[in-house]
């Protein structure tokens, strides 16, 4: 006798969702921060926080609007942004040039790499007194501290990316008569680009970190100056506004790095999509 098998619809088992959610992913991810702010506001309104140490989100927002209205925040932001961009320009240039010299030529490696490793081993901010001794207390030590952190992050990542370009691709290129120049432009540099972009992303993070340290040196303007003043006058609401500004700057930097990656590494997106 043949028993009749009971058949079920496999889609109804619910092991995997039947369809993708219609709400875009970024909107879903926004839920976390929004819930945090709402809870924070509710707890503040229930007077569970001391407003002298923890202002409510609405008070912080209010302070931000006032600071923007007077143009104070913009002026300080502009000064800080200028320092970061300046430091980035110098640091990225030095990092890339150094990595190319050390990555592509043995003499370059001998000359540069060990020095960079030593530099990397010292915490960047320990150089601050030396930079002040060399450059005084003007813009130069601030910009050079940022440039130093960027330089190291870009160098370390770009150099190792150049050295780690797939040896089998280099070998294949050589058998097809690829000369030194084409080897560099068509094989090694594009192969090292992902590593450079990782370095750039780290450099952006460390640039903002270095900025905070740099602006503790006698800064007449800048977010660090604002932070110092707020601390002095117990303006905890201003400090929270500044924390928000730092967060936004960090997020914008990362978005920028991601944008660069998607533009420059189109070939890799194709690869990942497969």
């Amino acid at each position: 006798m043949v028993t009749q098998l009971e058949l079920v619809d496999p889609r109804a088992e619910g092991i995997v969702p039947a369809q993708e959610s219609r709400v875009p992913r970024w909107l879903q991810r926004l839920v976390g921060p929004v819930v945090l702010l709402v809870v924070w506001q509710a707890l503040s309104m229930a007077q569970l926080f001391d407003p002298r140490t923890t202002p409510s989100p609405l008070i912080v927002l209010n302070t931000a609007i006032t600071l923007l209205g007077s143009g104070e925040l913009q002026a300080h932001l502009q000064a800080s942004l200028g320092r970061v961009l300046h430091g980035l320009a110098i640091g990225v240039s030095l990092g890339v040039v150094g990595a190319l010299l050390a990555g592509l030529a043995r003499w370059g490696e001998n000359l540069i790499d060990a020095n960079m490793e030593i530099l990397h081993a010292v915490p960047n901010f320990a150089f601050l007194p030396v930079l002040i001794a060399w450059f005084g207390i003007g813009e130069e030590p601030k910009v050079s501290l940022i440039a130093l952190s960027v330089w190291i992050a870009v160098y370390i990542n770009t150099y190792s990316a150049i050295r780690n370009v797939d040896a089998s691709l280099v070998e294949a290129a050589r058998t097809f008569g690829v000369g030194r120049r084409e080897l560099i432009t068509a094989v090694i540099l594009p192969g090292a680009l992902p590593g450079f972009l990782v370095g750039l992303r780290l450099a952006l993070t460390s640039a903002w970190l270095a900025l905070i340290f740099a602006e503790t040196i006698n800064a007449p303007t800048g977010l660090g100056r604002m932070m110092g003043d707020a601390r002095e006058y117990f303006r905890i609401d201003v400090i929270f506004v500044l924390l928000g500004v730092y967060a936004l700057l960090g997020l914008v930097s990362l978005a920028l790095a991601r944008f660069l990656e998607s533009r420059l590494l189109a070939w890799r997106r194709a690869f990942d999509g497969a």
């Binding site: 290129a173 084409e182 094989v187």
Partner: peptide
């Protein structure tokens, strides 16, 4: 052993 960052035709003419 194709260069993933070069389009197909450029891979073919590599070294020429």
């Amino acid at each position: 052993r194709l260069m993933p960052w070069l389009p197909v035709l450029r891979n073919v003419t590599l070294g020429l």
